[in-house]
Design a protein around this nucleic acid. Structure first.
Lengths: 145, 145
DNA sequence: CAGAATCCGGGCTGATACTG
DNA sequence: CAGTATCAGCCCGGATTCTG
Protein backbone atom coordinates (compact mmCIF):
# COMPACT_ATOMS: atom_id res chain seq x y z
CA UNK A 1 0.00 0.00 0.00
CA UNK A 2 1.66 3.24 1.18
CA UNK A 3 2.39 6.02 -1.24
CA UNK A 4 5.86 6.25 0.32
CA UNK A 5 7.84 4.79 -2.57
CA UNK A 6 11.16 3.16 -1.81
CA UNK A 7 14.07 5.04 -3.28
CA UNK A 8 16.37 3.21 -5.65
CA UNK A 9 19.86 4.30 -6.58
CA UNK A 10 22.11 2.73 -9.14
CA UNK A 11 25.25 3.33 -7.11
CA UNK A 12 26.01 4.52 -3.60
CA UNK A 13 27.48 7.67 -5.06
CA UNK A 14 24.06 8.66 -6.35
CA UNK A 15 22.81 8.73 -2.76
CA UNK A 16 25.85 10.68 -1.59
CA UNK A 17 25.45 13.23 -4.33
CA UNK A 18 21.75 13.57 -3.65
CA UNK A 19 22.65 14.56 -0.09
CA UNK A 20 24.91 17.40 -1.19
CA UNK A 21 22.76 18.25 -4.19
CA UNK A 22 21.62 21.83 -3.84
CA UNK A 23 23.36 24.98 -4.89
CA UNK A 24 24.46 25.96 -1.40
CA UNK A 25 24.74 22.74 0.56
CA UNK A 26 28.47 22.25 0.30
CA UNK A 27 29.02 25.83 1.43
CA UNK A 28 26.64 25.36 4.33
CA UNK A 29 28.50 22.25 5.43
CA UNK A 30 31.84 24.04 5.23
CA UNK A 31 30.68 27.12 7.13
CA UNK A 32 28.84 25.22 9.80
CA UNK A 33 31.88 22.99 10.07
CA UNK A 34 33.98 25.95 11.16
CA UNK A 35 31.68 26.75 14.04
CA UNK A 36 27.98 26.53 14.94
CA UNK A 37 26.13 29.33 13.20
CA UNK A 38 22.76 31.01 13.36
CA UNK A 39 20.30 31.54 10.54
CA UNK A 40 21.11 35.20 10.11
CA UNK A 41 24.83 34.55 10.20
CA UNK A 42 24.59 31.99 7.41
CA UNK A 43 22.48 34.43 5.45
CA UNK A 44 25.22 37.05 5.63
CA UNK A 45 28.09 34.59 5.12
CA UNK A 46 26.74 33.11 1.92
CA UNK A 47 26.36 36.00 -0.44
CA UNK A 48 23.35 35.63 -2.69
CA UNK A 49 21.31 32.95 -0.94
CA UNK A 50 17.71 33.74 -0.10
CA UNK A 51 15.99 33.02 3.19
CA UNK A 52 13.65 30.51 1.60
CA UNK A 53 16.38 28.47 -0.04
CA UNK A 54 18.55 28.58 3.08
CA UNK A 55 15.72 27.15 5.15
CA UNK A 56 15.01 24.48 2.55
CA UNK A 57 18.56 23.27 2.30
CA UNK A 58 19.08 23.38 6.07
CA UNK A 59 15.99 21.21 6.53
CA UNK A 60 17.15 18.70 3.94
CA UNK A 61 20.62 18.49 5.44
CA UNK A 62 18.99 17.98 8.82
CA UNK A 63 16.72 15.24 7.49
CA UNK A 64 19.74 13.55 5.99
CA UNK A 65 21.55 13.65 9.31
CA UNK A 66 24.34 15.97 8.19
CA UNK A 67 23.61 18.97 10.39
CA UNK A 68 21.68 19.40 13.62
CA UNK A 69 19.42 22.21 14.68
CA UNK A 70 19.56 23.48 18.24
CA UNK A 71 16.84 25.84 19.44
CA UNK A 72 17.24 27.72 22.68
CA UNK A 73 13.51 28.35 22.97
CA UNK A 74 14.03 31.98 23.91
CA UNK A 75 12.23 35.13 22.84
CA UNK A 76 13.44 36.42 20.49
CA UNK A 77 14.29 33.00 19.12
CA UNK A 78 17.85 31.73 18.97
CA UNK A 79 18.73 28.76 16.80
CA UNK A 80 22.15 27.41 15.88
CA UNK A 81 23.18 24.84 13.30
CA UNK A 82 26.16 22.52 13.68
CA UNK A 83 27.53 19.38 12.08
CA UNK A 84 26.62 15.87 13.15
CA UNK A 85 29.20 13.10 13.20
CA UNK A 86 28.15 12.13 9.68
CA UNK A 87 28.47 15.76 8.72
CA UNK A 88 32.02 15.95 9.97
CA UNK A 89 32.89 12.83 8.02
CA UNK A 90 31.29 14.21 4.89
CA UNK A 91 33.15 17.47 5.34
CA UNK A 92 36.46 15.64 5.14
CA UNK A 93 35.47 14.28 1.76
CA UNK A 94 34.51 17.74 0.61
CA UNK A 95 38.07 18.76 1.33
CA UNK A 96 39.34 15.97 -0.91
CA UNK A 97 36.97 16.98 -3.66
CA UNK A 98 38.18 20.55 -3.28
CA UNK A 99 41.79 19.49 -3.72
CA UNK A 100 40.85 17.67 -6.91
CA UNK A 101 38.97 20.71 -8.14
CA UNK A 102 41.91 22.99 -7.47
CA UNK A 103 44.27 20.71 -9.37
CA UNK A 104 41.79 20.62 -12.24
CA UNK A 105 41.52 24.40 -12.17
CA UNK A 106 45.27 24.71 -12.63
CA UNK A 107 45.16 22.49 -15.68
CA UNK A 108 42.25 24.42 -17.13
CA UNK A 109 44.04 27.71 -16.57
CA UNK A 110 47.14 26.39 -18.32
CA UNK A 111 44.95 25.51 -21.28
CA UNK A 112 43.46 28.98 -21.45
CA UNK A 113 40.19 28.17 -19.74
CA UNK A 114 40.08 30.77 -17.02
CA UNK A 115 38.88 29.47 -13.69
CA UNK A 116 39.08 31.20 -10.37
CA UNK A 117 38.60 29.49 -7.04
CA UNK A 118 37.98 31.85 -4.16
CA UNK A 119 38.83 29.70 -1.15
CA UNK A 120 41.40 26.91 -1.00
CA UNK A 121 40.79 23.54 0.60
CA UNK A 122 43.09 24.49 3.45
CA UNK A 123 40.53 26.98 4.68
CA UNK A 124 37.91 24.30 5.14
CA UNK A 125 40.12 21.52 6.47
CA UNK A 126 38.82 19.97 9.68
CA UNK A 127 42.17 20.92 11.19
CA UNK A 128 41.58 24.60 10.49
CA UNK A 129 40.65 26.43 13.65
CA UNK A 130 38.47 29.48 13.41
CA UNK A 131 36.82 29.07 16.77
CA UNK A 132 38.18 32.37 18.00
CA UNK A 133 36.85 34.33 15.06
CA UNK A 134 33.68 36.32 15.42
CA UNK A 135 31.06 36.52 12.74
CA UNK A 136 32.09 39.90 11.45
CA UNK A 137 35.52 38.53 10.65
CA UNK A 138 33.96 35.52 9.02
CA UNK A 139 31.83 37.77 6.87
CA UNK A 140 34.88 39.63 5.67
CA UNK A 141 36.55 36.29 5.05
CA UNK A 142 33.58 35.20 3.00
CA UNK A 143 33.03 38.28 0.91
CA UNK A 144 36.54 39.26 0.01
CA UNK A 145 37.85 37.63 -3.11
CA UNK B 1 36.99 42.59 -24.19
CA UNK B 2 35.93 38.98 -24.92
CA UNK B 3 32.46 37.77 -24.05
CA UNK B 4 34.11 34.64 -22.62
CA UNK B 5 33.47 35.32 -18.95
CA UNK B 6 35.89 33.82 -16.46
CA UNK B 7 34.30 31.22 -14.23
CA UNK B 8 34.43 31.74 -10.50
CA UNK B 9 33.91 29.05 -7.91
CA UNK B 10 33.72 29.53 -4.20
CA UNK B 11 35.51 26.26 -3.45
CA UNK B 12 37.36 23.68 -5.50
CA UNK B 13 34.60 21.24 -4.78
CA UNK B 14 32.21 23.37 -6.76
CA UNK B 15 34.35 22.81 -9.84
CA UNK B 16 34.61 19.08 -9.16
CA UNK B 17 30.89 18.76 -8.71
CA UNK B 18 30.23 20.76 -11.86
CA UNK B 19 32.26 18.18 -13.75
CA UNK B 20 30.17 15.25 -12.57
CA UNK B 21 26.97 17.28 -12.55
CA UNK B 22 24.54 15.62 -14.90
CA UNK B 23 22.11 12.83 -14.25
CA UNK B 24 24.17 10.14 -15.99
CA UNK B 25 27.77 11.29 -15.78
CA UNK B 26 28.83 9.19 -12.82
CA UNK B 27 27.35 6.11 -14.49
CA UNK B 28 29.10 6.93 -17.74
CA UNK B 29 32.42 7.25 -15.94
CA UNK B 30 31.90 3.94 -14.15
CA UNK B 31 30.86 2.03 -17.28
CA UNK B 32 33.56 3.48 -19.49
CA UNK B 33 36.00 2.75 -16.69
CA UNK B 34 35.28 -0.95 -16.99
CA UNK B 35 36.17 -0.99 -20.64
CA UNK B 36 36.03 1.28 -23.69
CA UNK B 37 32.48 1.41 -24.98
CA UNK B 38 30.62 2.52 -28.05
CA UNK B 39 27.70 4.91 -28.26
CA UNK B 40 25.13 2.17 -28.80
CA UNK B 41 26.56 0.07 -26.01
CA UNK B 42 26.28 2.92 -23.51
CA UNK B 43 22.74 3.52 -24.72
CA UNK B 44 21.79 -0.06 -23.88
CA UNK B 45 23.79 -0.23 -20.66
CA UNK B 46 22.23 2.82 -19.09
CA UNK B 47 18.56 2.12 -19.02
CA UNK B 48 16.48 5.23 -19.61
CA UNK B 49 19.01 7.62 -21.11
CA UNK B 50 18.18 9.24 -24.43
CA UNK B 51 20.53 9.67 -27.36
CA UNK B 52 20.50 13.43 -27.01
CA UNK B 53 21.43 13.48 -23.37
CA UNK B 54 24.05 10.78 -23.82
CA UNK B 55 25.76 12.82 -26.52
CA UNK B 56 25.56 15.99 -24.42
CA UNK B 57 27.09 14.45 -21.34
CA UNK B 58 29.77 12.62 -23.33
CA UNK B 59 30.78 15.93 -24.94
CA UNK B 60 30.93 17.70 -21.61
CA UNK B 61 32.99 14.94 -20.03
CA UNK B 62 35.30 15.09 -23.03
CA UNK B 63 35.64 18.87 -22.79
CA UNK B 64 36.47 18.49 -19.11
CA UNK B 65 39.19 15.96 -19.90
CA UNK B 66 37.52 13.01 -18.17
CA UNK B 67 36.87 10.76 -21.15
CA UNK B 68 38.36 10.57 -24.61
CA UNK B 69 36.65 9.90 -27.91
CA UNK B 70 38.32 7.64 -30.44
CA UNK B 71 36.90 7.50 -33.95
CA UNK B 72 38.01 4.78 -36.35
CA UNK B 73 36.87 6.78 -39.37
CA UNK B 74 35.21 3.75 -40.96
CA UNK B 75 31.89 3.34 -42.74
CA UNK B 76 29.68 2.61 -40.95
CA UNK B 77 31.24 4.76 -38.22
CA UNK B 78 32.85 3.23 -35.17
CA UNK B 79 33.55 5.37 -32.13
CA UNK B 80 34.67 4.30 -28.66
CA UNK B 81 34.85 6.22 -25.42
CA UNK B 82 37.41 5.55 -22.71
CA UNK B 83 38.75 7.23 -19.57
CA UNK B 84 41.64 9.68 -19.55
CA UNK B 85 44.16 9.70 -16.73
CA UNK B 86 42.09 12.36 -14.96
CA UNK B 87 39.05 10.19 -15.51
CA UNK B 88 40.68 7.19 -13.86
CA UNK B 89 41.63 9.35 -10.90
CA UNK B 90 38.13 10.73 -10.63
CA UNK B 91 36.70 7.23 -10.82
CA UNK B 92 38.62 6.27 -7.69
CA UNK B 93 36.93 9.08 -5.82
CA UNK B 94 33.56 7.94 -7.08
CA UNK B 95 34.27 4.63 -5.40
CA UNK B 96 34.88 6.41 -2.11
CA UNK B 97 31.69 8.40 -2.48
CA UNK B 98 29.87 5.15 -3.21
CA UNK B 99 31.16 3.57 -0.02
CA UNK B 100 29.90 6.57 1.95
CA UNK B 101 26.54 6.33 0.25
CA UNK B 102 26.22 2.66 1.03
CA UNK B 103 27.00 3.26 4.70
CA UNK B 104 24.42 6.06 4.73
CA UNK B 105 21.87 3.78 3.08
CA UNK B 106 22.27 1.23 5.87
CA UNK B 107 21.60 3.89 8.47
CA UNK B 108 18.56 5.15 6.60
CA UNK B 109 17.20 1.62 6.29
CA UNK B 110 17.61 1.07 10.01
CA UNK B 111 15.59 4.22 10.58
CA UNK B 112 12.77 3.05 8.34
CA UNK B 113 13.71 5.12 5.32
CA UNK B 114 13.84 2.52 2.62
CA UNK B 115 16.75 2.89 0.25
CA UNK B 116 17.99 0.40 -2.27
CA UNK B 117 21.34 0.55 -3.99
CA UNK B 118 21.62 -1.63 -7.05
CA UNK B 119 25.38 -1.94 -7.48
CA UNK B 120 28.00 -1.93 -4.73
CA UNK B 121 31.21 0.02 -4.85
CA UNK B 122 33.14 -3.22 -5.36
CA UNK B 123 31.69 -3.56 -8.81
CA UNK B 124 33.16 -0.26 -9.92
CA UNK B 125 36.51 -0.46 -8.18
CA UNK B 126 39.46 0.14 -10.48
CA UNK B 127 40.69 -3.27 -9.43
CA UNK B 128 37.55 -4.96 -10.77
CA UNK B 129 38.26 -6.69 -14.02
CA UNK B 130 35.49 -7.09 -16.52
CA UNK B 131 37.71 -7.03 -19.58
CA UNK B 132 36.66 -10.52 -20.60
CA UNK B 133 32.96 -9.73 -20.50
CA UNK B 134 31.12 -9.00 -23.70
CA UNK B 135 28.49 -6.34 -23.97
CA UNK B 136 25.54 -8.72 -23.73
CA UNK B 137 26.76 -9.83 -20.34
CA UNK B 138 27.26 -6.24 -19.30
CA UNK B 139 23.74 -5.42 -20.34
CA UNK B 140 22.39 -8.22 -18.15
CA UNK B 141 24.62 -6.97 -15.38
CA UNK B 142 23.22 -3.50 -15.80
CA UNK B 143 19.54 -4.31 -16.08
CA UNK B 144 19.11 -6.96 -13.42
CA UNK B 145 18.35 -5.58 -10.03
C1' DC C 1 25.99 3.35 -36.35
C1' DA C 2 26.56 7.75 -34.37
C1' DG C 3 24.60 11.99 -33.87
C1' DA C 4 22.08 16.60 -34.72
C1' DA C 5 17.72 19.40 -34.24
C1' DT C 6 13.39 20.67 -32.12
C1' DC C 7 9.72 20.96 -28.82
C1' DC C 8 8.16 20.47 -24.29
C1' DG C 9 7.46 19.73 -19.11
C1' DG C 10 9.07 19.63 -14.23
C1' DG C 11 11.91 21.02 -10.59
C1' DC C 12 14.99 23.99 -8.46
C1' DT C 13 16.10 28.59 -7.48
C1' DG C 14 15.26 33.50 -6.64
C1' DA C 15 12.31 37.72 -5.40
C1' DT C 16 8.95 39.45 -2.63
C1' DA C 17 5.81 39.84 1.12
C1' DC C 18 3.96 38.18 5.47
C1' DT C 19 4.08 36.06 10.58
C1' DG C 20 4.92 34.23 15.76
C1' DC D 1 15.13 36.66 14.85
C1' DA D 2 13.76 32.85 12.36
C1' DG D 3 11.18 31.46 9.67
C1' DT D 4 6.41 30.63 5.84
C1' DA D 5 3.90 31.45 1.64
C1' DT D 6 3.31 32.53 -3.11
C1' DC D 7 4.69 33.48 -7.72
C1' DA D 8 7.77 33.49 -11.65
C1' DG D 9 11.93 32.25 -14.61
C1' DC D 10 15.33 29.17 -16.15
C1' DC D 11 17.80 25.24 -17.10
C1' DC D 12 18.09 20.31 -17.43
C1' DG D 13 16.42 16.27 -19.08
C1' DG D 14 13.09 13.41 -22.02
C1' DA D 15 10.55 12.18 -26.47
C1' DT D 16 10.66 12.41 -31.12
C1' DT D 17 12.34 13.04 -35.68
C1' DC D 18 15.88 13.52 -39.16
C1' DT D 19 20.81 12.82 -41.35
C1' DG D 20 25.85 11.41 -43.18
Amino acid sequence: MSGMADVIYNLGIDLTLSIIDGKWKTSIICWVGIKPLRNGELLRLMHGISQKVLTQQLRELEDDGIIQRTSYGTVPPKVVYSLTEDGRELRKVLVTLSKIGEKKAEKFNEMGRTIHITHTYKEIMPEANYSNLNVETLVKFATES
